[in-house]
Amino acid sequence: MGSTECVLLSLMAYDRYVAICNPLRYPIIMNKRVCVQIAAGSWVTGCLTSLVETVSVMQLSLCGNNIINHFACEFLTLLKMVCVDTSMVQLIILVITVLLVPMPMLLICVSYAFILSNILRISSVDGRGKAYSTCAAHLTVVILFYGTALSRYLKPSSVDSQEIDKFIALVYAGVTPMLNPIIYSLRNKEVKTAVKKLLVRNPFVPS
């Protein structure tokens, strides 16, 4: 799921780039077929990387009481329970992590560099507001997801705290996906109106 979201978020950045920098060509470039290919490609990438990681870890012998101190059977947690040399598996995981975290992030940064350059050339305040609104939700999700994922998988080996790892994994695997529908739906005018009405009715929030 994490691998799939990494790829999908980077392709969504490209979608934002096309929407803002080539708005007239958007329906042609991002047609239904392309959207299906993007979704399918993201899922295939996620499944393949998960398969490689799972097969490589499950071939190793575990030692100790085999009790996993985590919310899920995560491969990084399993590696800590292995008795044999894990350097080859760690190399595989490093390669996959580099392909799925820094490279999609680079695509996101490049996309938003072009987007920002285009926004700065927009003369009307209303036009800039619409452009910022288009990108705000996606950027929020990117920061939440990649911030926690980077701190989990690319942190120094000297920083080893199981409780911190569990908290970070909970944020990027559980909290961020739960917030996604809320974050994206806040662009909807009806949802904004409903939230404002809810806040006005709340006695703890000043009107």
Rank of each mutant, 00 (worst) to 15 (best):
A137D: 09
C35H: 11
M81C: 12
T134L: 14
L48D: 01
R128S: 07
G127S: 08
G174N: 11
T54G: 03
E190Y: 13
S111T: 10
I67R: 14
Q162V: 15
H70G: 15
P104T: 04
I38H: 09
V171P: 01
S10C: 12
C47R: 04
A137G: 13
T97C: 11
P23K: 06
M88K: 15
V55G: 00
D85V: 07
L8Y: 10
C73D: 06
S50Q: 03
Y14M: 11
C6E: 13
Y146P: 05
G46A: 02
T176P: 02
V18W: 05
N65K: 09
C6S: 15
L51Y: 11
Y172P: 03
S157G: 00
D160L: 06
C73M: 09
I92S: 04
F75N: 10
K196S: 05
V34Q: 08
I29P: 10
L99I: 13
L198T: 14
S10L: 06
P27Y: 04
M30L: 11
K32D: 09
N202G: 01
I29M: 05
V191S: 04
L198E: 03
C47S: 13
Q59E: 13
F204S: 12
Y26Q: 15
I96V: 14
N188W: 08
E53Y: 01
N69F: 04
L79N: 08
Q37D: 11
Y146M: 10
R152M: 09
T140K: 10
A113M: 13
I108R: 07
S123W: 04
R25C: 00
M30F: 11
F75L: 07
A194I: 03
Q90E: 15
K192S: 14
M30N: 12
C47Y: 12
K189W: 05
Y17N: 04
S185H: 02
V84H: 07
N22V: 00
T193V: 06
K196N: 03
K32C: 02
G127I: 07
F71C: 04
D15R: 07
D126W: 03
E53P: 00
K189M: 06
A113R: 14
I28V: 12
I28N: 06
P23R: 02
G174L: 02
T45C: 13
M178A: 14
L79A: 06
A13I: 06
K166P: 00
I20D: 01
C6Y: 11
L51N: 03
G147P: 06
S185W: 04
V191Y: 03
S133V: 01
T49Q: 14
K197M: 14
G64R: 10
L11D: 01
V175F: 15
V36R: 11
I29N: 08
V175A: 14
P203I: 08
P177E: 10
L186H: 02
V141F: 07
S61V: 09
Y17C: 09
A169D: 04
G2Y: 02
R33S: 10
L154I: 10
V159F: 15
K155Q: 12
S111Q: 05
K32G: 00
A40C: 06
L94S: 12
I68Q: 13
K155H: 11
P104R: 04
L91W: 12
V101S: 06
P181N: 02
F114G: 04
A13G: 11
